[in-house]
Design a protein around this nucleic acid. Structure first.
Lengths: 218, 218
DNA sequence: CTGATTTATGACTGAAAGTCACAAAAATTC
DNA sequence: GAATTTTTGTGACTTTCAGTCATAAATCAG
């Protein structure tokens, strides 16, 4: 019965929650490296200065650790997106959003890599239902957000009148593909251009593909 | 000393080569399933009706099996591409190529999935040098092929005058992203459209992005 | 047919995910 | 504040799987 100055969360519970965050931070710091999938739970536990078994008191599996990292990262991403819709111009808005997305993915490679891993269907099927639902909720938040921008672009006659889901697919595919390419092949080495140029090119390409689609071709 | 009717390859060597193909076929048939990364070397050996150790007489590691599957598949893909360049119209050519690529990736999910896995830089670094070089050779064959089509498109004034590498990046990114999306989320379930429609949309988007790029924006 | 060489094999090793019986600490009761 | 119950922490243990290797089986040479 919490009363007076006592908070609803006991000291112990707070401690427990803090440790959870410590595990996630330890994991993230290890995932920075190039072979993040090789990182073991034991390494994470050592980094967090706890026993391996304790990790499993917080997360039912290694993959749940991935899930929590991804959920937090995607949430932050969406938050940042919402600050980018100040402009009236739909294309400027989209350009800003694309920029923010690339910036966040490149500035937080560990989170971003894990987030990518968490897109895979087989991964999601392995997850307990509750987490799967959280992913679905976040996905639809994302779709609604981009969808509303595209819709207003169509209303303003800037974007061809196609189903927003279709428009969104192209954007998402190009973005995901570009990010994969950045990670899989060291862009600057493979293509002899720097990352910033690459991002600009892809961003232009994404918008060109969107705007340039013919008004219902057949 | 091979002489008379005796071929250079002895019966034994032929047998050995045949078995190699059997291993690859066994692996591929197991990779058809949804959890292809979970397939074990022992399962492959059982499917090929040989001992596990024998697999390692042919391939130094499980990842080398992936490599040989990918090299064969990519080679066939390029071969098919070359049949699609009959048309004079560059955009028709590209449309055909995109179609072929999607068709082959969707008709051969096992090969395609493995090929995707083999794009990852960390994977390639683990490979012995000889195989890595084979991958690089195939990559540049691919780039040259698409590059030459884009170049003639620029000459014909159909495609904006940008470095072909830049143009190629957008195409590749969108294609890879689309394929990933098809695998990661069951497209027909997620987006309530069928695969064929999806492929058409993405194909249109790819070409629109290519053609629609402004002539050096800044 | 005998001995040499090549090829095939599955028991073994090592590494890592996940479990669990028990230890340590904290909370509760008297 | 001692005794008891509950919660939390732990590393030794189990399982699974990639990769190794000593040995068996097959093939070949003379």
């Amino acid at each position: 019965m919490p009363a007076g100055g006592t908070p609803f969360i006991s000291k112990k519970q707070a401690e427990f929650a803090r440790r959870e965050q410590e595990i996630l931070n330890a994991a993230l710091s290890l995932f920075e490296g190039p072979h993040w999938e090789q990182v073991t739970v034991e390494q994470i536990s050592r980094k967090a200065e706890i026993g391996k078994g304790t990790v499993y008191k917080h997360f039912a599996s290694k993959e749940e650790i991935y899930a929590y990292i991804t959920l937090a990262f995607t949430d932050k991403l969406l938050e940042n997106f919402e600050t980018a819709t100040s402009s009236e111009d739909v294309l400027v808005c989209l350009k800003n959003i694309i920029r923010i997305a690339f910036d966040m993915f490149l500035a937080n490679p560990a989170q971003a890599r894990v987030s990518f891993y968490c897109k895979r269907e087989d991964y999601r099927n392995r997850l307990p239902q509750e987490l799967r639902e959280q992913f679905e909720k976040l996905d639809s938040r994302f779709e609604n957000f981009i969808g509303s921008i595209l819709t207003s672009g169509i209303e303003q006659g800037i974007i061809p009148e196609k189903p927003v889901e279709h428009l969104m697919m192209g954007l998402e595919a190009t973005f995901d593909g570009a990010i994969s390419m950045i990670w899989n092949t060291d862009v600057s080495h493979q293509h002899t251009i720097d990352l910033d140029t690459y991002v600009t090119i892809i961003s232009e390409y994404m918008l060109a593909g969107l705007v340039g689609l013919k008004q219902s071709s057949d």
